[in-house]
Design a protein around this nucleic acid. Structure first.
Lengths: 142, 142
DNA sequence: ATAGGGCTTCCCATCATGGGAAGGTCAAGG
DNA sequence: CCTTGACCTTCCCATGATGGGAAGCCCTAT
C-alpha cells in the first residue's frame, strides 16, 4: 500500500512517516517503480507501535530503543521493564511538579476575591521575589 | 544595568530577554549611547514576573494577558482568577492524562517477568492494535 | 487525453530555548 | 595610549515533533 493508506491505517500522518524514515527511526520503505513508498502489513505494525508509544508519551529516543528490543527476538524482558518503569518515574516526576503548581494556584485563587476590584494575591505572588535565581555573589564565577 | 546583570538578577537568560522583547512580550529596553540595552529595577520586576509565570507553566500567550492585567491598575481581580483557574484546569487535564499512562505502564510492568527471557507483555501491548485511529469508512469524508 | 488526486522532495513555520559567529564597546592595567 | 578580555550587538542555525504549502511527477477513471 502507498503512504496515504498506511497513514490512515496506522494513525501516523504521511508527513510523520517520512520524518521517521528520515531520522532513521524506521527503515526506508521499499519503493515502487515510480518511486512511491510501499508499505507492508509488518510496516503498519511498526507504525502502530510507534503511534502507541508516542501516545504513551515515550520520547523518540526511548522509542528507538523499544523498537530495537521489539525486533530483537532474543531480548531480555528485564530491559523492557526497566525502560517502562523509567518512563513511569519520569511521568511521576512531572505529575508531582504540575500538582505542586496547581496546588499553589488553587491556594492563591482561593484568597483572591475574584470581583471587580483590582487587588489580587495571584498577581502579588507572581510579582513577588521568590528564591533568587542562583545569585552569583558579585564575582562572576569565583 | 546591562542585559547580563539583568539576566543574572532575574533568572531570565539574556537570550530570552531579547526574545521577549522581539515578540513584544516586554517593551523595548531603553538603550545606552552605544546601543546597549539598559534595565531599571522595574524592568527587573517584570522579568521576574515572567520568570515566575513560566515556571508555573503558564504559556506565553496567557502571560501576555497576565502582564497586561498586572500593569492595569484598574483590572478586575475576577479576570486574573479566571485565568489562574483556567490554567489549573489545564494542568489537571494533563495530570490525569499522564496518570492514566503511568497506571497502564505500571500494570503492564507488573505482569512482565523482567528476567532474561524475551516474552514481555509491555511490548505485546505496544504492538497490539488499539482503537483504530479515526477509521474513515471508505469514503474519504462522506 | 484530460482532470483529480496522490505521491515525491524541498522549504518554511511553529514554541521556547540555546549555541555561536562577526563585530562594536568598555574598563582596567601595562 | 594601546591591548586585553569581558561584555554587548545582530544574525543565523538547531532543537523535537509536527504541520503547511509549492513545484512537479504519476496513476486512474472518465
Amino acid at each position: 500500500m502507498n503512504i496515504g493508506e498506511a497513514a490512515k491505517a496506522s494513525g501516523v500522518s504521511a508527513k510523520m512517516i517520512r520524518y521517521y524514515e528520515s531520522v532513521g527511526l524506521i527503515d526506508p520503505a521499499t519503493r515502487s517503480e515510480a518511486g512511491y513508498r510501499v508499505y507492508s502489513e509488518n510496516d503498519l505494525h511498526v507504525l502502530r507501535f510507534i503511534k502507541r508509544a508516542r501516545t504513551m508519551g515515550f520520547p523518540m529516543e526511548r522509542i528507538t530503543v523499544l523498537l530495537g528490543l521489539w525486533r530483537d527476538g532474543d531480548r531480555n524482558s528485564a530491559e523492557v521493564k526497566k525502560l517502562a518503569l523509567g518512563h513511569v518515574v519520569e511521568l511521576e516526576r512531572q505529575i508531582a511538579e504540575m500538582q505542586a503548581v496547581a496546588d499553589t494556584l488553587r491556594k492563591l485563587a482561593a484568597t483572591c476575591h475574584g470581583d471587580n476590584r483590582p487587588h489580587c494575591p495571584i498577581l502579588d505572588d507572581l510579582s513577588a521575589e521568590h528564591e533568587a535565581p542562583a545569585r552569583t555573589p558579585k564575582r562572576r564565577r569565583a
